[in-house]
């Protein structure tokens, strides 16, 4: 099992974390004005790159904080030090 570096707690086992999907998905400024198709794109459509991917992770069994990390989807390696954001 690999270690994930929590920005607060330091390296911990992967099992302590939960995955939160693609990072930097902005909530629509005017949700009510979206068409069904635009709303569906916001809710369901995510990038699926082969390579570095910015993701949200939660240290759910530790400090319970959310952070953003870049993971290479080919190797499952975390390629940059995670940053803590709200």
């Amino acid at each position: 099992m690999q270690l994930i570096a929590c920005p607060w707690c330091g390296p911990r086992e992967e099992i302590e974390f939960s995955y939160g999907g693609q990072a930097h998905v902005a909530y629509p400024e005017h949700p009510a004005s979206l068409t069904d198709e635009q709303w569906a794109h916001f809710v369901f459509f995510r990038d699926n790159p082969k390579g570095p991917f910015a993701e949200r992770w939660s240290h759910s069994a530790g400090c319970r904080r959310w952070f953003t990390a870049v993971r290479d989807t080919r190797t499952h390696r975390f390629v940059s030090p995670p940053e803590m954001t709200s």
Binding site: C9, R12, I15, E16, A61, G62, C63, R64
Partner: peptide
Amino acid sequence: AQTLLGQSG
């Protein structure tokens, strides 16, 4: 440290 002991937080 908050962590897991067996299956328990």
